[in-house]
Simulated assay, not measured.
Amino acid sequence: MSAALVPEVPTLVLDPSDRAPRAARMFLAEWFRAWGIADDHIGRLVVCELVTNAWKHGEGPIVVRLFQDARGGRPVIEVWDAGEGRPVAGAEDLAATSGRGLRLMAELVEEWGVRPLTEGGKVVWAKCGR
């Protein structure tokens, strides 16, 4: 019996720094172009928000994975970090100077969520529309 080949999932490992969001945007743009996805604006915004949150609120290296879902080929963005905190798109605070990114992202993607990792940390994922 032969084993089925599973395509490699594009993965980028980043140090948690202010350079991580830019590197993640460039990585996403490259893969969207390779997949023939001309409009990467929402994807770049989403990966930037998730990586920025991982850098500012998470722990350890940041892992970005990109793939297309099996139903419909919609791009899925995953961002992993070792922090235990879970991102929440909180209530709007008109006086706040930050904290709107997840709310904006939630409005732009088809769906998103968070899942814990058994070894600790979490994966925040978002499925973009096509």
Results as ranks from 00 to 15, higher is better:
residue 68 Q to R: 15
residue 70 A to V: 08
residue 7 P to D: 01
residue 98 S to Y: 14
residue 31 W to L: 10
residue 98 S to E: 08
residue 112 W to L: 06
residue 89 A to C: 08
residue 34 A to D: 07
residue 49 E to I: 09
residue 83 G to L: 00
residue 62 I to D: 01
residue 120 G to F: 01
residue 18 D to H: 13
residue 67 F to E: 10
residue 74 R to Y: 06
residue 47 V to I: 13
residue 112 W to V: 05
residue 60 G to A: 01
residue 29 A to W: 04
residue 89 A to M: 03
residue 82 A to R: 14
residue 68 Q to F: 05
residue 59 E to Y: 07
residue 40 D to E: 09
residue 65 R to W: 06
residue 65 R to L: 00
residue 92 E to V: 12
residue 64 V to S: 04
residue 16 P to Y: 04
residue 50 L to T: 07
residue 61 P to I: 05
residue 85 G to A: 15
residue 129 G to V: 12
residue 13 V to R: 10
residue 14 L to F: 08
residue 4 A to I: 04
residue 78 E to L: 09
residue 12 L to T: 05
residue 104 L to G: 10
residue 79 V to S: 01
residue 97 T to W: 12
residue 93 D to S: 14
residue 123 V to F: 05
residue 101 G to R: 01
residue 84 E to C: 13
residue 125 W to T: 03
residue 102 L to P: 11
residue 116 P to I: 07
residue 82 A to W: 06
residue 98 S to K: 10
residue 25 R to M: 06
residue 65 R to S: 04
residue 57 H to P: 03
residue 55 W to M: 10
residue 44 R to T: 03
residue 121 G to F: 00
residue 100 R to L: 14
residue 45 L to A: 15
residue 66 L to S: 00
residue 115 R to I: 08
residue 45 L to I: 15
residue 69 D to F: 07
residue 111 E to A: 13
residue 61 P to V: 09
residue 85 G to F: 11
residue 102 L to E: 01
residue 40 D to N: 06
residue 9 V to Q: 11
residue 69 D to G: 11
residue 114 V to M: 03
residue 100 R to G: 13
residue 113 G to A: 02
residue 82 A to P: 07
residue 69 D to Y: 04
residue 122 K to A: 08
residue 25 R to Y: 04
residue 80 W to G: 09
residue 13 V to K: 12
residue 13 V to G: 06
residue 87 P to G: 12
residue 129 G to R: 15
residue 56 K to A: 07
residue 19 R to N: 11
residue 60 G to I: 02
residue 120 G to K: 02
residue 81 D to M: 03
residue 99 G to T: 03
residue 46 V to L: 06
residue 124 V to R: 04
residue 54 A to F: 08
residue 44 R to Y: 01
residue 62 I to F: 11
residue 65 R to C: 05
residue 28 L to V: 11
residue 107 E to F: 15
residue 83 G to Q: 02
residue 106 A to L: 03
residue 45 L to Y: 13
residue 118 T to E: 10
residue 100 R to S: 12
residue 33 R to S: 14
residue 118 T to Y: 08
